[in-house]
């Protein structure tokens, strides 16, 4: 059975159509990337998929049931979402923020128990945050903050992870670090990953399936190597690009054709 099934989704905010008749599906355990130029509807699409937004038309099903029929906490135990907003303004400690990932699992009027504590500690260790667990999050660098957000999502123990541009504003070292942690999680736990990416090279390197959006419509959907076609990408992004194969990994990569 498909984990996500998106059928005929259109979204109209009132000033114009942002998504237009989007249909696709993905199975459990897939590693799925959504790419497309600015304003092509990527963020709106993941808000619809994650149940934050009910689309003007069409339907999203998760495990065969429409997403909006799930109770919010029930859905949060299954799907973790990291949007670009989402670092605490207040000086909560790293551990406090990661502990918030247990929120959907807490029973009424009860607090974090020893099992929650164990999960939080494991996640902190896994992401290399154990040493800084007592530090206030607002004193960390942008890259470390993103790792804290990822740790919070891990503490949620979801079966699907949705990420909106997880590497934006990060230096190349942290970009790779975040992507590797997501990949390791996906490989070891078999979770389903959906991520919106701006960087086509990261998309080629880390995603198996890709969906290319152009002005709210699906331009291409399939295996990463097929979607990342030089002609298609050049026309969608309206800039001269040359596709080369990665000398070591053999995955498609793009270079600027001219200055």
């Amino acid at each position: 059975m498909n984990l996500f099934e998106v059928t005929g989704v259109s979204q109209d905010y009132g000033w114009g159509q942002v998504l237009n008749d989007i249909s696709f599906h993905l199975a459990e355990g897939e590693n799925f990337g959504i790419i497309g130029p600015n304003g092509s509807g990527k963020s709106t699409l993941i808000r619809v998929i994650s149940g934050l937004l009910s689309p003007s038309q069409g339907e999203v099903r998760f495990r065969g049931k429409p997403v909006h029929t799930y109770r919010k906490k029930e859905l949060a135990r299954q799907i973790a979402v990291l949007e670009q907003e989402g670092t605490a303004l207040l000086p909560f400690s790293v551990k406090d923020v990661v502990a918030m990932g247990r929120y959907p699992w807490l029973k009424l009027f009860s607090d974090i128990n020893s099992e929650d504590e164990r999960i939080i500690a494991e996640v902190l260790k896994t992401l290399g945050l154990w040493e800084v667990r007592a530090k206030p999050v607002n004193t960390l660098s942008g890259g470390q903050r993103q790792l804290v957000s990822l740790a919070r999502a891990m503490a949620q123990q979801p079966s699907a992870l949705i990420l909106d541009e997880p590497t934006t504003y990060l230096d190349i070292g942290h970009q790779v670090l975040v992507m590797q942690h997501v990949r390791r999680w996906y490989m070891e736990q078999g979770i389903t990953v959906i991520m919106v990416l701006h960087d086509l090279n990261l998309a080629g390197q880390y995603c198996d399936q890709l969906l290319l959006l152009e002005q709210g419509q699906i331009r291409a959907w399939g295996k990463a190597a097929e979607v990342l076609d030089e002609g298609t990408i050049t026309s969608v992004y309206r800039t001269g690009l040359i596709k080369v194969n990665h000398p070591v990994l053999g995955v498609p990569q793009f270079l600027l054709a001219s200055v």
Binding site: R77, G86, V97
Partner: peptide
């Protein structure tokens, strides 16, 4: 006093809190 979890989680932002299952 019983709302402390929610008051903490909302500090992450309204969308993030929604994604964590908060109404």
């Amino acid at each position: 006093l019983l709302q402390y979890h929610d008051l903490n989680v909302i500090a992450l932002g309204e969308r993030a809190a929604t994604h964590l299952g908060m109404e």
